Simulated assay, not measured.
Amino acid sequence: MKRRLLASPLLWPTVALIVLLLINVVITPSFLTIRVQDGHLFGSLIDILRNGAPTMLIALGMTLVIASRGIDLSVGAVVAISGALGCAHIASSADPASPGTVITAMSIALGVAVALGLWNGVLVSVFGVQPIIATLVLMTAGRGIALLITDGQIVTVTSPAFKVLGAGYAFGLPVAVLVSLSVFVVVGLLTRYTALGMLLESVGINPEASRLAGVRYRSIVFAVYVFSALCAGIAGLMIASNISAADANNAGLWIEMDAILAVVIGGTSLLGGRFSLTGTILGALIIQTLTTTVYTAGITPETTLVFKALVVVAVCLLQAPKFRALLSRRRPPDALSAPAPAAGPAPEQAPTSGAPNTAMVTK
């Protein structure tokens, strides 16, 4: 049991998250305090969950993409486009506070996000473009598209119905957290209790062997890029709803890096194959907790990326078997230091050529 626990890819991310929480408790003793106000939960832990919900959502989509031996660098641009479309439609409507207007705006934003995912999927699965190149095209052009939608301005909206997604509460918890956890549960059930997870792992391990075995690997690769873009679209609406504005310059900026880091911290290999959705959630929480820790400690926000890099390197090294073996200084037993056999009768030896076999009975 101890050996299996030490070999688990979730061990060190969990330890890193606990250490970060303890550091915050030392800095702020009331950090773990959760209070109830107007039937809603408030506190630093709730803030971490709410602020980390968009990263969690995008990291879930990124996990499936990486499991298929791909990468999606365009999620940040999709976040900006989705938020820009949603806020632009609400701001230009005659009744911005109407729930129907908000539903229409969200539908347009998510429809465009799915279309962008279809674009990535076609380039990768149909035309065979390298994933990093195919998504880099949209990463570069997508931010410009978002700026064209907003005319380079920050589009602000005043809509209580739109505010619910990013800053609203339901059952005492933030709606953004409930949405991310719902996606996590649905994806977990589909990948662990159906054949989808096994087929996805087979495609990531060896696409050609999967094709020869009858697996529709193109369809699976196509689907994961669409799902990743859909998650990014929902996250873009969350971010815009939280601040009641669309900032095409800063919305989703470098969030693709946070998503990839969350996936790597969670133990998913960048080479494709086996993946861990639970590890991805832990990785996203580590990144958001680290950001909160930097702000709580009074460190300048510009150095947040440095601390993220240090934590990622530390967790990845602790997950590496060679590094753990180096720390424990395990060495194979030396043949010279092996214990001598116990004294006893000498074993019988086979007769050599030319020597009579006394055990043979002849007439």
Rank of each mutant, 00 (worst) to 15 (best):
Ser8Pro: 09
Leu10Gln: 03
Leu10Glu: 07
Leu10Pro: 01
Asn24Leu: 03
Asn24Pro: 01
Val25Tyr: 02
Pro29Ser: 03
Arg35Val: 14
Val36Trp: 05
Asp38Cys: 02
Gly43Phe: 07
Leu45Glu: 04
Asp47Tyr: 01
Arg50Pro: 06
Met56Ser: 12
Leu57Asn: 10
Met62Trp: 00
Ile66Met: 06
Asp72Ile: 04
Ala91Leu: 07
Asp95Phe: 13
Gly100Ser: 15
Met106Thr: 07
Ala109Arg: 10
Leu118Phe: 14
Val122Tyr: 15
Val124Glu: 05
Ile132Met: 14
Ala134Asn: 08
Leu136Phe: 10
Ala141Arg: 03
Gly142Pro: 02
Ile149Ala: 02
Lys163Phe: 09
Ala170Pro: 03
Ala170Glu: 09
Gly172Ile: 07
Gly172Thr: 09
Val177Cys: 11
Val183Arg: 05
Val185Asn: 08
Arg192Gln: 15
Thr194Trp: 00
Leu199Val: 01
Glu201Met: 12
Ser202Cys: 12
Val203Gln: 03
Pro207Ile: 06
Ser228Lys: 06
Ser228Pro: 03
Ser241Val: 11
Ile243His: 05
Ala246Ile: 05
Asp247Pro: 01
Ala248Thr: 03
Trp254Cys: 00
Asp258Ser: 15
Ser276Trp: 04
Leu277Glu: 13
Ala284Leu: 10
Thr291Val: 13
Thr292Asp: 14
Thr293Trp: 08
Thr300Asp: 10
Thr303Cys: 00
Thr303Lys: 09
Thr304Cys: 00
Val306Gln: 11
Ala309Asn: 05
Leu310Met: 15
Val313Met: 15
Cys316Val: 15
Ala320Gly: 00
Ala320Phe: 02
Leu326Thr: 05
Leu327Thr: 02
Ser328Pro: 00
Arg329His: 11
Arg329Tyr: 06
Pro332Thr: 06
Ala338Trp: 08
Ala340Trp: 08
Ala346Cys: 07
Ala346Met: 14
Thr362Val: 13
